[in-house]
Nucleic acid binder design. Sequence first.
DNA 1: CTAATTATGTAGTGGATATTACAGAATAGT
DNA 2: ACTATTCTGTAATATCCACTACATAATTAG
Lengths: 211, 211
Amino acid sequence: MAEQEFSNTSTQRRGRPREFDRTNALECAMRQFWQHGYETLSMADLTSCLGINPPSLYAAFGSKQAFFLEAIDHYLATRGAYVYAIPSDQRSPRAMLSHLLQRAAEAFSDAAYPAGCFVLASISATYDSYEIEQAIVQRCQQRMSKIDELVALGVQMGELPATTNAEELAQFFVCVLQGMSLQARLGASTSQLQAIVANALQVWPQAARLR
Amino acid sequence: MAEQEFSNTSTQRRGRPREFDRTNALECAMRQFWQHGYETLSMADLTSCLGINPPSLYAAFGSKQAFFLEAIDHYLATRGAYVYAIPSDQRSPRAMLSHLLQRAAEAFSDAAYPAGCFVLASISATYDSYEIEQAIVQRCQQRMSKIDELVALGVQMGELPATTNAEELAQFFVCVLQGMSLQARLGASTSQLQAIVANALQVWPQAARLR
DNA sequence: CTAATTATGTAGTGGATATTACAGAATAGT
DNA sequence: ACTATTCTGTAATATCCACTACATAATTAG
């Protein structure tokens, strides 16, 4: 199975060369899936949108499901990596969480991309395939586990009371982040999302009140 | 258009009587749409699930889109009315919001129903019809405006500082509620959702610190 | 009774869907 | 040049989708 796919910049293979840029097609497909969702976006939509005939698409990406999952991974490797990046130069875990949420507030409402987070928007959709749903949930949890680590670090470093239930607090922030993605898809502005972040961060007070 | 539909308990009409309970069918369809989503649930699924043949379903409900919207309204009139009910005997706006969120935490994870809120779960899906999406967004905003009123009332009654941005704070709680619905659909337990509520309510301190 | 009306079951309808068969074109290796 | 290999465009395929034509059954009105 798992046939090796080559990027366009790799050494040329035998046979007729591909006439389109694979990465570019993937980027376009990502935006289409992101905006319209997996179920409602048809392969016919994609072929006409990309200007690529079905056999070429299937030769390059395999199937609609594989194409979608590769678009998800492309998102995580590019835009998602930017959105969920955690800067290492920040000393305070709270500052890092604040940074993460504020960047999400900006990115989720960036007009240069479809609204919200591609993964979070995909997770709430329903799929005919159980396999695809599992793959998305797994990738979502990978990203959200970063928030778990930040909160746990906050307790460890004394920024939060030792009595804090770190798992519960982290889940609260994940919940807010998921709600923000939905709000963004409903048309919330950057400043509105920033206000949500500011309110959410009150749960992690800047001056810790240890007891 | 908008042909009048009669309930089964109304006075009998001329012609062959319906052989199934219309309200019961609506309840079943609601749960199916709730669990599987509009796009992925086919009319063939519904007919086999309800044991009702297509012509009978179409005679009773019109079209898939009309059926779905009626299922949404059925939810809002029954389960949704319970979930989003605001008790009038509570004096404090904060207590009323707390009541609302805690009831949502329980209801969203109630095994007797599909997880989360039917409307909030539907709002994040994508539809081929723009009309259906608009209808859902509108019904969602109707429910969420209750939270706006509660926060505004809290400021008015002095439970929150007069400097509070009521719209922003209300949007924060709406965001949390929407996140809770998604968390529930991902399998969050009642106690996990309750912990999210407890954290969120810290943004509205019990002892107001006016300034 | 007959006529009118409404529901039901069988069996389809046209259209959209993801996917592919096939023949021809463009490249690399030898 | 010749072969193997891979891509491309045309056109199709089987399957599923929401929806319905039609004949029949069951009721009410008169």
